[in-house]
């Protein structure tokens, strides 16, 4: 899932400072399950902003609504009237949600209420960790299902470097050494020979380095392209 966390209230207040009528839009998918921007968080933020701006002597009308997914036009259509009535939309979606609102409602000013952090999972209640860097050319098949692009601090393909100690990365004792994890897993599966192969330099074109990415599936398109 996409994991995000809320921006500090002070920063959000600065972002909506000019507006009178604020619509907080939550998202019912990834950011709901990571407790950052679902219906519950949207209601809390709306209420905090009402109280806080009132105390500042600059009380705003703040309402909230949550859609199933901010990243799909059909769900955004459902809130078109509320969006039109607002001076500003505070999106509690990930960066995709914020941009979807901006793209779908060109006359509306939208600001982010979250910092989109990474693609990851909850490792335990209240703890999320990064797992995927969306590099566009998955190598998990040769690394025992553990991604060194996302999880090694240097994204090494032929690790571990000399900074691996007692299972953690030298940059932080709380960061696992991805290559120690890979080593342990391949060792337990009897596949350490995989690590003896030199992995060539990665083709980063499929990653963000190749420019903004897009996938077109002709088999799924409803309207054939002209010419």
């Amino acid at each position: 899932m996409i994991v995000a966390e809320q921006k500090p209230l002070q920063e959000i207040k600065r972002l909506i400072n000019e507006a009178e009528n604020v619509l907080v839009v939550g998202c019912g998918t990834c950011v709901t399950v990571c407790f950052a921007g679902g219906a519950r968080e949207a209601a809390i933020i709306a209420s905090s902003l009402r109280m806080s701006t009132k105390l500042d002597g600059n009380g705003k009308n703040v309402s909230d609504v949550t859609v199933q997914r901010q990243c799909e036009w059909e769900y955004l259509d459902q809130i078109a009237d509320q969006v039109a009535a607002a001076d500003i939309v505070l999106s509690l979606g990930c960066g995709i949600g914020v941009q979807a609102i901006a793209e779908h409602f060109p006359a509306t000013w939208v600001v982010p209420g979250l910092n989109t952090s990474f693609l990851g999972l909850p490792t335990e209640q209240g703890v999320w960790a990064e797992r995927c860097a969306a590099c566009g050319d998955c190598i998990l098949g040769i690394t025992g299902g553990i991604c060194p692009i996302a999880r090694c601090s240097k994204s090494l393909l032929n690790g571990p470097c000399g900074g691996s100690e007692a299972g953690h990365c030298e940059i932080d004792p709380d960061v696992d050494c991805a290559w120690q994890l890979i080593y342990n897993r391949l060792s337990s599966m009897g596949k350490l020979d995989v690590l003896l192969e030199i992995q060539p330099p990665k083709n980063w074109r499929t990653s963000r380095d190749g420019g903004p990415r897009k996938i077109v599936r002709q088999d799924l398109r409803l309207v054939a392209e002209e010419d």
Binding site: K154, L156, C161, I198, K202
Partner: peptide, 26 residues
């Protein structure tokens, strides 16, 4: 491969790591 930038005097820098040390040798 190089010490991670977190340790140095520009910890807010973007790192590169386009290649690793083994690939560099090659």
């Amino acid at each position: 491969s190089g010490d991670h930038q977190t340790f140095g005097n520009h910890p807010t820098a973007k790192n590169v790591f386009d290649m690793d040390s083994l690939q560099l040798v090659q």
